[in-house]
Design a binder for these strands. Sequence first.
DNA 1: ACGCTTTCGCTACGAGTCGTAGCGTAACTG
DNA 2: CAGTTACGCTACGACTCGTAGCGAAAGCGT
Lengths: 208, 208
Amino acid sequence: MQSSTPAARTGRPRSAAADAAILEATREALVELGWSKLTLSDVATRAGVAKTTLYRRWSGKNELVVDAVAELFDELELPDRGSLAADIEGVVLQFAAILDRPEAQSGLMAVVAESTRDDALRERIRTSIVDRQKRLVLEGRARAAARGELPPEPDPDAASHEADLIFDVVAGAVVHRTLVSARPADEEWVRDLTRVLLLGLAGAAHTS
Amino acid sequence: MQSSTPAARTGRPRSAAADAAILEATREALVELGWSKLTLSDVATRAGVAKTTLYRRWSGKNELVVDAVAELFDELELPDRGSLAADIEGVVLQFAAILDRPEAQSGLMAVVAESTRDDALRERIRTSIVDRQKRLVLEGRARAAARGELPPEPDPDAASHEADLIFDVVAGAVVHRTLVSARPADEEWVRDLTRVLLLGLAGAAHTS
DNA sequence: ACGCTTTCGCTACGAGTCGTAGCGTAACTG
DNA sequence: CAGTTACGCTACGACTCGTAGCGAAAGCGT
C-alpha cells in the first residue's frame, strides 16, 4: 500500500483492481502453500496478471506479504463494552481471531523473521501493522482513565512506557499462545489473561 | 539431534564431530545470511562436509535450523536468587540474552512460521525448545509455593493451566519486545514486566 | 587378517525458481 | 493526435534444490 504517489499524473494509471487481486491471491497462496513454497510466479498466475507487473509494484516476496497480511488487521477496532476488562477482552478476541487464520499464521511470523535482518522491512511492518494495533492500547488506556478505572497517566513519558509494556505483553501472549503453544486463545483464556493483566496494572499503579 | 539410534551397530559410525560442525556452521550462516538466503550447500561448505552428508542426517532446512537453534537454549537454567521476583527476573534476562543473538532471531521465528503448516516440525520445536523453557516455569512455581510467596497449587489441572498462561505471557512478551518492537528487553523492562506479572498472579490467586 | 556394512566426499544431473530485459499493445492526458 | 506510462508476454542466465552413482574410508565380527 504505497498510497502516496504525488507524481505520475500522466500516462496509463495503475490498475487498482490489480492491486486488490494480487493481495487477495497472495493470501490465498499463503493458505495453500505457506510462506516458503509461495512463489511470485504463482501469485501472478492466481491474480491473473503478469509476473512483471508484480515486480513493478513490490520489490520482493517480503514486502508483498507484509501488505497482504496488513489488510487482515484493518478490521481491528476498540469496542465499547462498558468496562475496561470487557473492552480488553473484546479487542484481544478480535486479535486472536485474526491470528487464527492460516494466512496470518504463515505470513506474519515469516516476515517478522525476515525483518530481523532488514530495517526497511521492519519499518514497513511497524507502520502498516504494529502501530495500528498499538493505537488501540493508547485509546483503551485513555478511556479507562476517563472512566476512573485506572488512575490518570502521570506524565506522557511514563504513559508511553506503560503502553509499550502492555502492548508487548498482550500481543506477545496471544501470538505465543496461538503459534508456539498452538492452543486456542479462546474466551476462557482471554478472560484469565485480562484478569492477571488488570490486577497487575492496578497494583503497579499503587506502588509506583 | 536424533539421539535414539538403537539400530546400526555395525558399519562405519557417523561422525559426531560432523554433527557439531554442521550445527555450528548453520548458526554462523544464520548470522551472516539470515533464514531466507541460507542454503544447505553453503552450510555444508562451511562445515567442511559434503552436501550429501547433510541430507543423510536432516530432511531439510527446517529441521536443521531447529536443532541448531535449540542448542542455544541449553544454557537456560533457573537461578536461585532468594526471592520469586529475583528468580523470574534472572531467568527472563537469560532468555532475553539468547533472543538478542542474531542467529536466534532470524532462525527461531522462521521455523515457528514454517511449523504452522507442518505438525511434525511443530512437535520437534516443542520437544527440543519449548518444553525445556516451560519446565523452568513449573520449577519456579513450585519453589515459590515452598517459600510461601504464592499459595500452593490447588489441583494439578489448574496448576498446569496457570503455568501455560504464565509461560505464554512471559515468553511471548520477551519475543514480542525483542523481535517486533525491536527494543531491548533490559533490566528495567524486565523489572516492570515481573512486577506486573507478580501482582497480577497474587491478585488472581486471592479472587479465584 | 579378512570380509561385511555403513558412512563419507565427490561429481553430475533434471527440475524448478529468481529477477530482468525487450517488445508490442493498451490506457489515459493535454 | 502525440506523448507517456502501465500492461501482458516471452525468453534468458544464474542459482538452488534434492537425488543418484561411484570409489574410498572406517569400524565390527569371525
